[in-house]
């Protein structure tokens, strides 16, 4: 029984054509979908961007399905032999690579992150720019691109700040000397958030107060309209929060004591 077909010129041309069409399809979808997504906003934009790796995977599966019958005699035994051999060989040679590929497939339906999400993986925080078959790219606030393999999914906690939505909580911290009227400070900080031009008014504003050995820690929590404006928003809360607190004559805790 022959395993492989005799490759004639027609088969080679067909395979080359399939590979070229697949490459063209992937390149086209990678350019076209982000372009299309820019013309939408909100959830539609996120879904269009998230569909890019799905398209790519579908195109690759279609290509493999079309190529295998042109190379291998399409009997059950042959397919089992070819796929088994390939599986063992690739498994040893590209264990991590294959692991990332499978993790990439898992991300398609578990969706721990989507394009446009703000995530943190092992102290790297940024916006997901692209989700590939093996890895994802995130852009950090310092405009650095970090490429992270999907296999981190198996072992690492992934923190997703907005989880596919437009709502991303920001926190502005204030550290005050303990001698002050906490209710006035809380009211004032709440007012600071409610009057920020960046504020998403459909989400709550929360002030959390925690007494520490060195003073009082205030955490002003609120949501910006656009997740991308999170740093502008936090800066605005901090600037105006400090101004509002200065008018209340409270003293800022300048040097926290870190005694063990």
């Amino acid at each position: 029984m022959e395993l492989l077909k005799n490759l004639n010129q027609t088969n080679v041309i067909e395979i080359a054509g399939i590979l070229a069409a697949t490459w063209f399809g992937i390149a086209f979808s990678q350019r076209c979908l982000p372009w299309l997504a820019k013309r939408f906003s909100g959830r539609r934009q996120l879904y269009i961007l998230a569909s890019a790796p799905v398209f790519r995977l579908l195109l690759i599966i279609v290509a493999i399905t079309l190529i295998i019958p042109r190379v291998v005699e399409p009997t059950f035994e042959n397919l089992v032999a070819v796929l088994g051999t390939l599986g063992v060989a690739l498994g040893f040679a590209f264990k991590d690579y294959i692991s990332s590929l499978f993790a990439g497939i898992v991300t398609l339906y578990e969706m721990p992150y989507r394009v446009g999400d703000w995530i943190s993986i092992e102290d790297i925080y940024g916006e997901v720019r692209e989700i590939g078959t093996r890895s994802l790219e995130i852009v950090t606030p310092d405009d650095t691109v970090a490429v992270i393999p999907h296999q981190k999914l198996w072992t690492t906690a992934i923190h997703n700040a907005n989880d596919g939505s437009q709502f991303l909580m920001c926190i502005a911290d204030f550290y005050l000397h303990p001698q002050h009227d906490a209710m006035r400070v809380k009211t004032s900080l709440r007012e600071v958030a409610l009057t920020s031009a960046y504020l998403q008014l459909d989400r709550p504003v929360i002030v959390v107060i925690q007494e520490q050995p060195w003073g009082t820690h205030y955490r002003l929590k609120a949501y910006p309209v656009e997740p991308r404006n999170q740093f502008y928003f936090t800066t605005d809360l901090t600037i105006r929060g400090k101004a509002a607190l200065a008018e209340l004559d409270v003293v800022f805790a300048a040097v926290p004591f870190a005694r063990k």
């Binding site: 004032s188 007012e191 409610l194 009057t195 031009a197 101004a243 509002a244």
Partner: peptide
């Protein structure tokens, strides 16, 4: 005014 002193 949408200012921290503007709502009181």
């Amino acid at each position: 005014l949408r200012h921290y002193r503007g709502l009181t």
